[in-house]
């Protein structure tokens, strides 16, 4: 898809630009034509492609799982139900393994995270130029199809989990217990003179520990997927460099895609497992 008229840098940049709809300071509400315009819109902009693909994929997940759940019976399962139950069983085992308290939210949360992240990552395996090309034919010039390469997506999920961590920490231990956990550890003292120092140090340490959870969650996923997508884009650049490089690129793409099957599953699994572990820690009385 790379014509002679655009350079490699432009090609990469084009691929990494979201379809942005927002409030431009000069032109009002509009679709951004370029990455610069999108940047100028600041916070009041929506990545239409990200929202479309992520909600579309989540709806796909919700539709099929709801279909299976509606037909679910204790009889002999078949086809879709078998598949769905296999995943549910897998999630259920993971939750049982690392979550010791009782909470009906955690398992469905883990399932949603796993399925959603997996599906969003799976878009990475679609050839990088296919959907952008189709959309350009339809008149849409920017199209980033892998939602998990958009930090908005990963941060939104991580913040959702973070919110639940704080909510359950306070619910299980009370505000005092939560604050005590943040200030009373790891340094403990009964000396009244030393107490303010340890409190401040503890607060800094535990605060970093707490903030690190959502940040690491989201950046891990984002970084992995962004890098993976970048490599796919770089490989696809080779197609424009003659047929020898093209064949070499094709082989590379195949190898990278096979390797990426592992990566996308692993990333979804890590996100889910860490969510369960963090929520378990939020429920636990003591570290």
């Amino acid at each position: 898809m790379v014509g002679n008229e655009i350079t490699s840098a432009e090609y990469i940049k084009h691929h990494l630009t979201n379809l942005t709809f927002g409030n431009h300071p000069d032109h009002g509400w509009m679709l951004a034509g370029t990455a610069e315009e999108a940047k100028e819109m600041g916070f009041w902009a929506v990545h239409v492609d990200t929202v479309f693909w992520s909600i579309g994929l989540a709806s796909l997940f919700a539709f099929y799982f709801y279909k299976a759940a509606k037909k679910a019976s204790a009889g002999v399962p078949s086809g879709l139900q078998n598949f769905v139950e296999m995943i549910v069983e897998f999630i259920d085992e993971s939750v049982r393994g690392s979550f010791s308290a009782k909470n009906d939210l955690v398992a469905p949360l883990a399932l949603t995270i796993f399925a959603w992240v997996f599906l969003m990552n799976l878009m990475d395996l679609v050839p990088v130029d296919l959907i952008p090309w189709i959309s350009s034919v339809l008149g849409i010039h920017h199209m980033k199809v892998v939602p998990s390469t958009d930090p908005n997506v990963t941060f939104a999920m991580a913040f959702g989990v973070f919110f639940l961590i704080i909510f359950y920490s306070i619910k299980m231990k009370g505000v005092g217990g939560f604050v005590g956990e943040l200030t009373g550890m790891p340094f403990q003292t009964n000396n009244l003179l030393l107490k303010p120092f340890t409190t401040v140090i503890n607060l800094i340490l535990e605060g970093v520990n707490l903030i690190a959870k959502p940040i690491s969650l989201s950046l891990r996923l984002f970084g992995n997927m962004y890098a993976g997508e970048m490599i796919f884009i770089l490989i696809s650049l080779m197609y424009s460099a003659g047929w020898v490089m093209g064949i070499f690129g094709g082989t590379l793409q195949l190898v990278w895609a096979i390797f990426h099957i592992l990566v996308i599953t692993l990333q979804a699994f890590i996100f889910m497992t860490l969510t369960i572990v963090y929520l378990d820690m939020a429920h636990a009385e003591h570290h």
Binding site: N18, A45, V46, V51, F61, W116, P151
Partner: peptide, 20 residues
Amino acid sequence: NINLTLIAQLVSFAVFVWFT
């Protein structure tokens, strides 16, 4: 670019978790 998408994603995340 962190923008309104974040909020949209948060809301849809909550909705899908609730649905599940």
